[in-house]
Computed example of a mutant assay.
Amino acid sequence: MTTGISTAPRRRSPARTLLPLAVAAWLILEIWLLSLVAGAAGGLTVALLIAGGILLGAVVIKRAGRRAFKNLTDSFQRAQQGQGPEQAGQRPGQGNGLIMLAGLFLMLPGLISDAAGLLLLLPPVRALISRRATRSLERRMAAAPAGTFGDAFQQARIHQPDGKVVQGEVIREDRPAPGPGQAGPDTGHRPPLTH
Rank of each mutant, 00 (worst) to 15 (best):
M107R: 02
S13D: 12
L27W: 04
L19D: 09
T2N: 07
G181E: 10
S75G: 14
L193K: 13
T134C: 05
G84C: 13
V23F: 11
L44W: 00
T148W: 07
I129V: 14
I54D: 01
A15V: 13
T17R: 15
G168N: 11
L48N: 00
V60C: 09
G168Y: 12
L21P: 04
G93R: 05
D151M: 06
G110D: 01
A156Y: 10
S35Q: 03
V37S: 04
A146P: 15
H159Y: 10
R10A: 15
I28Y: 02
R66H: 13
T73G: 08
G42V: 04
D151C: 07
L193G: 11
G181M: 10
V46Q: 00
R132A: 09
K62Y: 05
L128I: 01
P176G: 09
L48W: 00
R172F: 13
K70P: 07
A146K: 11
L101T: 03
M100T: 02
T17Q: 15
A133G: 11
I5E: 02
E173F: 06
T7M: 06
R172P: 08
A15T: 10
V37A: 06
R126S: 05
R16I: 07
L137F: 09
I50W: 00
R66V: 15
N71L: 13
K164S: 15
A15Y: 09
V60T: 06
V37P: 03
I5Y: 00
G42R: 02
K62A: 13
R190Q: 14
R66F: 09
E86D: 11
L118V: 02
L18W: 15
